[in-house]
Write a protein that binds this DNA or RNA. Structure first.
Lengths: 195, 195
DNA sequence: GTCTATAGTGGGATAGAC
DNA sequence: GTCTATCCCACTATAGAC
């Protein structure tokens, strides 16, 4: 434990990603130096290049992992039920998952500009995949006659923006609990689609 | 017109702000250099310091001006009417104004981190002022009995996030016109507050 | 696997000529 | 009011010792 050098590849890799995520979210990708990340991890800057080919690849890894986990977590939720029940599950899932990973969510909205065009396209594709999950629910509800939605594409974007917005103001220990916030947002979403 | 040097203080100042806004919005504050801004304006980097004490002050000026103009433009809108009519005006105003100033809106959400604590507090105060305008409408509607809102603070944040989200996907010449988008969003907002 | 040292580049800001 | 030139510092990434 006291030694300063040695083999730590199984510890250092995840630690680099964790500290990079924290620093990028707090100060912005361009404003954070590799030296800062190395300092937070407890290694020298050069050592980072054993784990990532360059700074942008580190960012891409964070965003890609986040999007993959988001989609996997949604697929792991119980399915079935009518559109009304599925929409409620989506709303509660989205708020819960995003609040649990506030830093990663923040990054995945703010730092897309710093990706190469190829990497940008990958993340955008995953985002689209996730949005399509919500749109499918809205379309199903429209077909079943339980929702009244003028445009399902716009409703998809509107609902996701509204739900993701919770991350910008929610503070642990504030006036409302996560559960209460989710209840209230579900009430607004439900009404907005005419259910 | 052909001379390369001379006095242009009335042209150069606004040009610096315009190019800085464009570049900051496109690449991010930290990723844009003073040399880049100067190049876009057509002057040397040193000349920028006749117009701004430093890079951060340039950013603050852009954000402050935007927030002042947003609030002034809202106050210039016709007032009066019941809460239902005032909410509709707010929804249409917000979408229209934000689409007209997409770069400034983007900056005012993305680059707050790069302000000093004092300057950050100024912008946040102005944002709060604007949000309070919407909250007052929602409270009035709740009192008049025309809205059914579980929590006016949350509804305020939800509606603003939803409306501002239009900027992330709207493209001129796309499937829907601005007017149609505003109609659809107004429909969703109206329903979400139980009107 | 991590270190030290450094190459090479580019950053913000300033001084002084014109 | 703008220019050129420059100070000083920080950055990403790499080379080579241990």
């Amino acid at each position: 434990m006291a030694r300063k050098t040695g083999s730590h590849s199984e510890i250092t890799g995840p630690k680099i990603r964790a500290e990079a995520q924290r620093l990028f979210a707090r100060h912005g990708f361009a404003a954070v130096s590799m030296r800062q990340i190395a300092g937070a991890v407890g290694v020298q800057a050069g050592a980072l290049y054993l784990y990532t080919p360059d700074k942008e690849a580190l960012l891409f890894d964070l965003l890609k992992t986040h999007m993959d986990e988001l989609i996997a977590a949604w697929h792991a939720e119980p399915g079935g039920g009518d559109a009304h029940a599925r929409l409620e599950r989506f709303v509660r899932f989205h708020i819960r998952f995003n609040l649990e990973r506030a830093e990663a969510v923040f990054l995945s909205y703010m730092e897309l500009r710093n990706l190469s065009p190829e990497n940008f396209a990958v993340i955008e594709g995953l985002r689209k995949t996730y949005e399509t999950e919500l749109e499918a629910i809205l379309k199903a509800g429209q077909d079943e006659g339980v929702f009244l939605i003028p445009d399902t594409k716009l409703a998809t974007m509107a609902i996701i923006a509204m739900l993701t917005g919770v991350n910008t103001w929610f503070r642990e220990g504030g006036r409302l609990s996560r559960a209460t916030v989710a209840d209230i947002y579900w009430d607004m979403v439900r009404k907005s689609v005419g259910a």
